[in-house]
């Protein structure tokens, strides 16, 4: 396997600052005999959007599931805000999760609740807010941010794929997370809606100063949202750089991703 690391220019270094919010060193994760993550090394700085590209089954989603504590790594170090995730108690993990938003591929809206109730859920259950006026305001603000205020009283089954992703994103940002992990945010959407979601990711980064890891196959999404990109293959990152930098790469796997990009 080629493990050439392509380092390219860092156009956004000044913009993103230097505080490391996620630090991963030598991360390993296996499922039975299948070694999904072999040696993952990654640092994400404050207010930085990092896009991770890779073929299906290379371990991208597993990496972000380890970050949020849904999966326990087999080896290596994974620190978020300087604390080792694997060593956290349930209470500490819960506190950490309040600071991390996670947008699932499907949106993962609670389908027995309306959009309003979906957004109220983390406010009342996690942040334990009691003031209905404040809850209503935060729900409306979050939905306005994603342009979905008109669907506030609809059930998830009444929403289109793009609307569900927007609602999922609104539920993610409503608790003001410092980090957002996006698991294939534009998969299954038409090109126009994909672009809208990609623009939304960028605007959320600018508005809320969030750090993000965006798992995607969508090159247009990567072009719009990425401050920095990493290419994953067979459980390791094989290339790192900006969109423009990686576009010029001669690495075969990297070239394959940029094949159709002019």
């Amino acid at each position: 396997m080629a493990e050439e690391t392509v380092k390219t220019g860092e156009k956004n270094k000044a913009k993103t600052g230097n505080e490391v919010v996620i630090a991963i060193k030598g991360l390993k994760k296996s499922f039975g005999k299948k070694h999904v993550l072999k040696d993952i090394n990654l640092e994400v700085k404050r207010s930085e959007n990092v896009v991770v590209l890779g073929r299906s089954g290379t371990g991208k989603s597993v990496t972000i599931q380890c970050i949020v504590g849904l999966l326990r790594p087999d080896g290596g170090s994974l620190k978020v805000f300087g604390d080792e995730v694997a060593e956290m108690s349930d209470k500490e993990l819960k506190q950490l999760r309040i600071k991390i938003g996670f947008l699932f591929q499907s949106g993962a809206l609670y389908d027995s609740m309306t959009v309003r109730e979906n957004l109220e859920f983390p406010l009342t259950r996690v942040l334990k807010l009691k003031d209905q006026g404040e809850i209503d305001k935060r729900v409306e603000d979050a939905l306005t941010s994603v342009g979905l205020l008109e669907a506030i009283d609809k059930l998830p089954s009444d929403l289109s794929g793009g609307m569900r992703k927007r609602a999922g994103l609104a539920r993610t940002i409503i608790v003001n997370p410092e980090i957002i992990l996006y698991d294939e945010p534009t998969t299954g959407l038409d090109p126009i809606t994909s672009r809208e979601i990609s623009d939304l990711i960028l605007s959320i980064q600018k508005k809320y100063k969030t750090s993000s890891i965006i798992i995607t196959h969508d090159m247009e999404c990567a072009r719009i949202a990425a401050d920095r990109m990493l290419i994953m293959d067979d459980g390791v990152f094989i290339a790192e750089g900006t969109f423009e930098g990686l576009h010029k790469s001669k690495n075969k796997t990297v070239e394959a991703f940029f094949k159709d990009i002019l």
């Binding site: 849904l70 999760r97 699932f104 993962a108 609670y110 859920f121």
Partner: peptide, 16 residues
């Protein structure tokens, strides 16, 4: 809910 990742979503949001 498990298949559609709603249980995971609830867990990663910090809810129980």
């Amino acid at each position: 809910m498990k298949v559609t990742e709603q249980l995971d979503a609830m867990e990663v949001s910090g809810a129980n």
